[in-house]
Structure formats: C-alpha cells, structure tokens
C-alpha cells in the first residue's frame, strides 16, 4: 500500500472533526472520497498532509508513519496536495507559481517540467507572464494542479477540483484527471460531485460527519442507491 490512513481522530482546537477515519490508496489507483459539504474531506487531506495533524491514529506512507511530521517534509516524501481553495500565489506570475513548486521526485528524477506542464495545460503557457490572481476560476484550478505536479509527487491529493466551476470546465478537469491517470499519477480525490467522481475513479469512500460510512468499488457504490441517497443527495 502506498498510503494507509488508520483510525485517525483530528481536532481543530476543541472541536472533534474526524472520528476514526481509515482509508487506503495503492500505487496507480484513483480513489475518491465523497461526502457532503462539511463531512470532513478537507480535514482528512489536511491530516495526511500534516496541516492539521491527527491527535490519534496513524498515517502510513510507503509503510512509514508520517503523522506529526511537518507539511514540507511530508510533501518532500512524495505527497502532493491540491487545496480546495486553490491558494495560488496571486502576485506571482503563472510561470513563477510553477517555478516555486519545482522539486525532484522521491526517485531523484523530474518527469514534470514547466514544458511538460504547458503541453498538458496550453492555457497556462498563453498566460505564463500573467499574475496568478488575474486568472479565471478554471485557469486557477489548472494552475493549482499544475503547480503541485511540478513537485513530481507519487500521490496527488485533489481536493474538490470541480467546485465552483462551470459544467464545461468541470468536464475539462475530468479529462485532465483521466489524462493524469494515463501518466501513472496515483490520485486521491475528494468530491461532493458524485457524477464527476464516479467517472474518474475505481474505488470510493463515502464520508459523513467525520466517519467513513462506505467503502468499495465505484460499481458497488452505484449499486447502493440508498447510501447515495442518505449521504450524498443534496
């Protein structure tokens, strides 16, 4: 297993948010973590990333515990985080946003370069000298993903890439995720958008109220409309 999250409990100050979340991702998989707004998806990602360290439980990365490590060390060990709020650097140009994020992969190689990123996101090349803050929502989403790819991660944590985007752009992002899968990027995807998640992933976890309520293949999830109704219908 590439990533194993084992029974983690995460708090923000006094508020208890995650109640024993466990999940696994293997190399080459695309797994989704679906749940309503406020279910605990982002908190799970932040727990993995060290941005909100779990109080109990373990996060094993390639078999080694990483919970409690600082975020930069976790990133260097090969986990790339694409945050929901995008958090592009508004006063850096598109190229600068990509350049600050560049690092070698854990194998010492760098399959992702600015040139390769531009190949996949031609829009970013057109806008390379523009400030990040002036991009449209869809372009910012592409830039966030591209920026994280520049770190050559072994696993990509994609937090709600479809959020707030027009349907046409959501489709484009979906295409992109499929393309990344072809590039052998392992992906853990957090989404409220079930349709989008099912289209790109093989396995799914349903989270609600800080607890995993279902885990199985996407086909199994589709075969359980009552689960979808209970935890995912709006």
């Amino acid at each position: 297993m590439l990533l194993q999250v084992q029974d983690i409990h995460t708090y923000y100050g006094l508020s208890h948010i995650l109640f024993g979340v466990s999940l696994e991702v293997d190399r080459g998989e695309c797994v989704c973590l679906v749940g309503r707004n406020g279910a605990g998806k982002t908190t799970t990602f932040k727990s993995i990333m060290g941005l909100a360290a779990p109080r109990t439980g373990a996060v094993l990365w390639k078999g080694q515990p990483i919970q409690g490590n600082p975020p930069f060390a976790i990133a260097r060990s090969g986990i790339g985080f694409v945050p929901e709020e995008r958090a592009i650097f508004p006063d850096l140009t598109v190229w600068e946003n990509l350049d600050v994020a560049h690092k070698l992969g854990t194998d010492g190689r760098s399959p992702w370069t600015v040139e390769r990123v531009y190949e996949i996101f031609p829009r970013l090349e057109e806008r390379k000298n523009q400030m990040g803050g002036t991009l449209s929502g869809g372009e910012q989403q592409m830039l966030t993903i591209a920026r994280t790819l520049m770190g050559n991660p072994d696993l990509l944590l994609l937090d709600e890439p479809s959020e707030g985007l027009a349907p046409l752009i959501v489709d484009a992002i979906g295409e992109l995720v499929l393309q990344l899968k072809q590039e052998d990027v392992t992906i853990l995807l957090a989404e409220q958008n079930l349709h989008f998640s099912l289209a790109v992933s093989e396995r799914a976890y349903v989270i609600d109220d800080g607890r995993i309520q279902f885990s199985g293949t996407t086909a199994e999830l589709e075969a359980h409309p009552e689960i979808i109704q209970k935890y995912l219908a709006v």
Partner: peptide, 19 residues
C-alpha cells in the same frame, strides 16, 4: 519567489515541500 509566495500563503508554500 519563495519569499513572495510565503508572504501570500506560508502554509501553501510548506505544502509544496519548502521549509
């Protein structure tokens, strides 16, 4: 560039692997 990025969002900079 790293300094300017850290001005905007230090948490994001560290999530990109920078100390």
């Amino acid at each position: 560039r790293i300094i300017r990025a850290a001005v905007a969002n230090p948490d994001m900079v560290s999530a990109l692997g920078i100390n």
